[in-house]
């Protein structure tokens, strides 16, 4: 058995929103053999700036290389290593769950507990929208799986550093 010190890390990236910037970042991960578990990217309130959140696994040495390599990219303006700072993170999932006569009420009850919204209804399915941190999403997925999940789409994590109090 290979013993590793691999951990999961969340990295925030502020980058210029220019063609190919995501390809440069993602290509760096694949080219150097780093993992990407999730990646999200969208423009920020500042025009021309994109915020990208990547969840990766590796040991500390790998994390430090990733942060340095990302900083080296010309289009990357700032890299946030969230292993060193407090941060908030959220993820959204759309879950299409089997909702037959006998399970409809149960699905709604679970949705209620997790403050999920029903965003689509059909004779056999409910589609739920649920937002939360990783733990919360895993928990609802686990419960709904017992009823029957048909499809699931998760956004991956978005993260911001907590502001100083």
């Amino acid at each position: 058995m290979i013993v590793t010190n691999d951990r999961r890390y969340t990295i925030g990236i502020l980058a210029q929103n220019v063609p190919g910037v995501l390809a440069r970042i993602v290509g760096l991960f694949s080219g150097r053999g780093y993992n990407i578990e999730t990646v999200t990217a969208a423009e920020t309130n500042e025009k021309g700036l994109t915020r990208i959140t990547i969840v990766t696994t590796g040991d500390e040495r790998v994390l430090s290389q990733i942060v340095k390599q990302l900083n080296k990219l010309v289009n990357v303006i700032k890299v946030f290593d969230f292993s060193e700072t407090e941060f908030v993170d959220r993820e959204m999932a759309l879950i299409k769950v089997r909702a037959e006569q006998e399970s409809r009420a149960e699905v709604l009850r679970i949705a209620d507990i997790f403050r999920a919204k029903v965003v689509d209804v059909s004779p056999h399915f409910y589609t739920l929208e649920v937002t939360g941190n990783e733990g919360k999403l895993s928990a609802i997925v686990e419960l709904l799986e017992q009823i029957g999940i048909a499809e699931i789409a998760r956004t991956g994590k978005a993260a911001l550093a907590r502001s100083k109090k």
Partner: peptide, 14 residues
Amino acid sequence: IIGITRPCTKHSYL
């Protein structure tokens, strides 16, 4: 060529 050389250039422009 931008895609091909992305990992072996310091930077590139189209």
